[in-house]
């Protein structure tokens, strides 16, 4: 039997914290092709949805399945760039090497790969800096480089360019597009409509912890079925 991570299938999944339903119930089928963007107002559950797909949130009910993989095995093929990037209390280079060592890579090989990716995100000069002194934008780029260096099959990006200037944004978006054309499934949460048009193939619109509408990017931008989706995409306030 061929093992495959796709389709991703979510059935009736919800997440409850402190007695409150944060998201769900969610029904979703996702194929491996294209970049999927998750949009929606603050607090609508984008981050929680991504974390749920990644398997790092406890399901209150329902199921999440990646093809015929166990959720814990699927995790090994995924990388997550958190909304507030988590830096280890180590140098930039050591931050890069850490996950590679976990995968059993030798030091020399890990350093090679780390340097290659630091170069691509423009952090070569900072490789000996303490990661905790990096700026917000530098942290985001380091976290992305660290994730890509692991060669995941699925890459979760939670607002990965929220702190980036125009130049870095373009560079990072190029990396994301490259990753996608290399066959990495990218699932990205974003508030940036320009980015949506530049990157996304499919849009998931979250509202109040539920998937309000899902569809092809052109279709949704030309005319969403639901009123709230069109409003949101037009920059109006949706509650």
């Amino acid at each position: 039997m061929v093992t495959s991570l796709f389709p991703l299938r979510i059935q009736g999944a919800s997440i409850i914290k402190r007695g409150k339903r944060i998201i769900g119930p969610i029904e979703l089928d996702l194929e491996s092709d294209g970049i999927t963007a998750v949009i929606g107002p603050n607090g609508s559950g984008k981050t929680t949805l991504l974390r749920m797909l990644h398997g790092i949130e406890n399901l209150a009910n329902g199921t999440v399945s990646w093809g015929n993989f166990e959720l814990s095995d699927a995790l090994k093929h995924q990388a997550f760039v958190f909304q507030n990037p988590i830096m280890l209390r180590r140098s930039v280079l050591e931050n890069m090497i850490y996950p590679l060592h976990l995968k059993g890579m030798t030091n020399a090989a890990a350093i090679d790969i780390a340097n290659k990716w630091l170069e691509r995100v423009g952090l070569s000069q900072s490789c000996n800096k303490d990661a905790l002194v990096l700026s917000g934008g530098e942290r985001q780029r380091l976290a992305l480089a660290r994730a890509l260096a692991c060669e995941p099959k699925i890459l979760f990006l939670d607002e990965p360019t929220s702190n980036l200037d125009g130049y870095s944004m373009a560079a990072v978006e190029k990396l994301i597009l490259d990753a996608s054309s290399d066959g990495i499934k990218v699932i990205i949460a974003t508030h940036d409509f320009g980015q949506l048009k530049r990157l996304a193939d499919t849009i998931i619109f979250m509202l109040n912890g539920k998937i309000h509408e899902i569809g092809n990017v052109e279709t949704l931008l030309l005319g969403a079925k639901k009123e709230e989706t069109s409003k949101f995409l037009n920059g109006e306030i949706v509650l």
């Binding site: 990644h54 790092i56 988590i86």
Partner: peptide
């Protein structure tokens, strides 16, 4: 508390 999400995500 600071590392939790990252180390879980990296399947440590």
């Amino acid at each position: 508390a600071m590392y939790h999400d990252l180390l879980i995500s990296l399947n440590t």
